[in-house]
Amino acid sequence: MTETLRIIFMGTPQFAEVSLQALLDGPDEVVAVVTQPDRAKGRGKKMQQPPVKVLAKASDIPVLQPTADIRSEEFQNGIASYQPDLIVVAAYGRMLPKNLLDLPPLGCINVHGSLLPKYRGAAPIQQSIINNDSEVGVTILQMDEKMDTGDILCRSRILPDPGETSGSLFLKLAALGSSTLLRAICGLKEGTLIPTPQDNSIATYTPMLKKEDGLIDWRMDAVKLESLIRGLDPWPTGYCFFNGKRLRLFKPEVVYLDPVVEAGTVIQADETGLVIACGTNALKISEIQPEGKKRMKTTDWLRGANLAAGTSLQPEESA
């Protein structure tokens, strides 16, 4: 099959937008886009369109935003009316039912932000940073009815940079995913791809992150906390509390020393920076976001924060 394919794209956030742009720039035709409904965001609860919708509208591509069950006959008939040869999914946010998976002749393929079967699930990119993986990547897989369990069509790998955050890695893997997607589609058209079943015995899962996952337990090892804070940047962010208000923490650096104080105790808070004792070693925090304020250099915040050495930042329930 070498003719132009009719593709339906399903995705929602910026990660998916990059793959959609690659398809729009490629040789095939995107006949429709499916994305999540507009959501109220921010303090003003203003309705915002998903990035994928914004791009699709700018490109005059029909946009579907189902609010009801996508298993419905009505939705399936709507998708079928576009006569897709292939459905491409990237961070859409819903599982696809069998009737949709079986609809296009080439099936449905997914752009996933990990080297499957490692990190199936909702937060693979964050988890790769949290675990301080030396190698990361993307997988294009043939979708089935379960979460990220389908046959692998192709994968691409890169090495994360020192100090990488999930935010910076998202951008890199979005670009890598888009180029790998085009390679996979070319292989599907030429019949050169050999689907490889995943080894379920070595599969790992990553659940969706919650805001509460960012609360720092300073009793952990500083090296693990450093990668945790990077992995939670930009959301939900690592945080602690000072005077009852949330402090979001960024740009951590391990300080190798033997704390003689309890974990969570401020060792240093002056013009040279903020250092906090951990279960093993300590962390220097170079940027911070006080509750209700913008992200700033920690040294700027410390000038008016009245935070002294000896203060405990360990949650009371864990102390």
Rank of each mutant, 00 (worst) to 15 (best):
R6A: 05
I8E: 11
F9L: 10
F9M: 13
E17T: 15
Q21T: 12
Q21W: 09
A22I: 08
L24D: 00
G26L: 06
A32C: 05
V34G: 05
Q36M: 08
Q36V: 05
D38L: 08
A40C: 15
G44H: 12
K45N: 14
K53H: 13
L55H: 04
D60A: 15
D60Q: 15
Q65H: 07
P66T: 13
T67Y: 08
A68M: 13
I70K: 10
E73G: 05
E74V: 14
E74M: 13
S81R: 02
P84D: 07
P84K: 03
V89F: 03
A90G: 08
R94S: 11
R94E: 09
M95I: 15
L96R: 06
L96I: 11
L96F: 12
K98A: 13
L100W: 06
L100F: 08
L100S: 12
L103G: 11
P104A: 05
P104Y: 10
G107F: 03
C108F: 00
V111E: 05
G113K: 06
L116T: 04
L116A: 09
P117K: 03
P117C: 12
P124H: 10
N131A: 13
D133N: 12
V136G: 11
T139I: 01
T139W: 01
M143L: 01
D144S: 04
D144H: 00
E145S: 08
K146P: 07
C154V: 08
R157K: 14
L159Y: 01
P160R: 01
G167L: 04
F170P: 01
G177K: 00
S178N: 04
T180G: 00
T180M: 01
L181A: 05
L181E: 02
A184D: 07
I185G: 08
C186D: 15
L188S: 01
K189F: 10
K189W: 08
E190F: 09
P195R: 06
T196F: 00
D199T: 07
T206F: 06
K211C: 11
E212I: 02
I216F: 02
I216Y: 02
I216M: 12
W218K: 09
V223Y: 14
V223R: 14
K224L: 12
L225W: 10
I229V: 04
I229P: 09
R230W: 02
D233Q: 09
D233C: 09
W235R: 15
T237I: 09
T237W: 14
G238Y: 00
C240L: 00
N243C: 12
V260P: 11
V261M: 10
E262T: 10
A263D: 03
V266I: 09
A269F: 11
E271M: 13
E271W: 12
E271G: 07
G273P: 03
A277E: 11
G279W: 12
G279L: 10
T280H: 15
I288T: 02
Q289A: 00
G292H: 08
W301E: 04
R303T: 14
N306V: 04
L307C: 10
S312F: 05
L313I: 09
E317P: 08
A319P: 11
